[in-house]
Simulated scan of single mutants.
Amino acid sequence: MVESTTVSSSEEIIQRNKGLSMYAVVTLQDSDEVMVAASNWLSTDKKQSYWPPFRSEEKCVEAAQKRFKPETDGRLWEKLNINFHKQLVSFDEAKKEQKEIQEQKERCFLLSTGFTGMLKKQRHENTQEMAKNPLRSVTLASTSRLTPEARLVSTTDMDANLKTLQDIKKIVEENSAMLKKLMKDNAVSDVPSSTSAPSKDVDTILNLPLRTIQDLSRTESELKDPKTRKKYIKSISQLGGFGPRDVIKNIMQHLITDDLANDFNWQGRGHKNAFSRLILADVIREAASIQNVLRVDCETEIKNYLWSIPDRIGRKRPRDYVDEW
């Protein structure tokens, strides 16, 4: 069954020859994601856009690139509220604009969350480490080129700081891969990583993991209290993990059961609820940031985790059935 059809090639040729914009860069208001959309998906006032219902991110990208008609089996897609940024002729130009806007949003986020203090702390720790272990000075030198606090306000300095973060992230991921190999970590295991060290006493107080929509609704109300919110963040920020994927996996498995997570996807497409709208999603972002997981990586790994839930449940069901016997 063909899910969607693309616009005719002759139409694309005509639009390219006329220099008409074929793609748009937009921000989805519900999830704050910067995305590339086909221009034929946008409403006349450019305040809404049809959006593909596909679960796979790759399929959504393909739909935009090939300019699918906004329908599946004759039924129009759901319309989402958007913030329009720019229209461009080619898909490559649109992807480049998307990346620039994402980086700008990330810079603003880092500035608004006290990134200056984190850089100063990292510089201090690196200096101490280099003094203790001269053999690592070459490696650490690549991650210790931090600009003074007074210069952080400039765009150029912010770009340099982002590059430093990327260097640090790369080193951490390489070390994580080596540790995982040594520990013979099973990539498909449903058991949280050995780095996870949850407190059973705290879990009992917080009633974790959440099992039902009622549990989640109660928790959402509780999280409106700053003290309770702080308690949750402190608890789940101590779970640990090797890299963004492992950190988010530990947090999600610790917070909610698979059956409850299966009721959600990131944007609330189809018949599922939007995880991005929960206060709990903000709590996860803050807890992950304490473990040096960037906001964009945190959201990406939450999406991946939610997408994998049906497969996880499918793998678990046969084992549960055998255990009952």
Rank of each mutant, 00 (worst) to 15 (best):
V2N: 10
N292W: 05
W51S: 04
V188R: 08
R245C: 06
D282F: 07
D258V: 00
S43C: 10
E58Y: 13
V153C: 08
V25L: 04
V191D: 01
W77T: 05
V247Y: 04
Q48Y: 07
E301W: 06
I256A: 15
S193A: 15
L182Q: 05
V293R: 00
R277C: 07
V61L: 14
P198K: 13
L135H: 08
P52R: 04
E129F: 11
V26D: 01
E286W: 11
Q104V: 00
A160M: 14
N133E: 10
W307Q: 15
E103M: 12
G19A: 09
D45P: 05
W77M: 11
R319E: 13
S289D: 12
K224T: 11
T113R: 09
G268Q: 05
G270A: 07
I168D: 11
F109L: 02
E174V: 13
S137F: 12
N133P: 05
S10Y: 09
L76I: 02
E173F: 02
D282M: 06
I236H: 02
A281Y: 06
A160D: 12
A281P: 03
Q238W: 00
G243V: 07
G268I: 00
T195C: 11
K132F: 13
Q238E: 15
T27P: 02
E78F: 09
V25M: 00
M252Y: 08
G241D: 07
P53W: 07
Y232S: 10
L20V: 10
S31V: 14
T257E: 10
R317Q: 15
L80R: 12
E173T: 03
D201M: 09
S237K: 03
S154Q: 14
E173G: 04
I248R: 01
K184I: 10
S199Y: 03
E129C: 08
I171F: 07
E12G: 05
P148F: 10
G270T: 00
F91E: 05
E106T: 05
I290V: 12
E286V: 04
W325G: 11
K96S: 12
E71T: 08
T164A: 11
F84L: 00
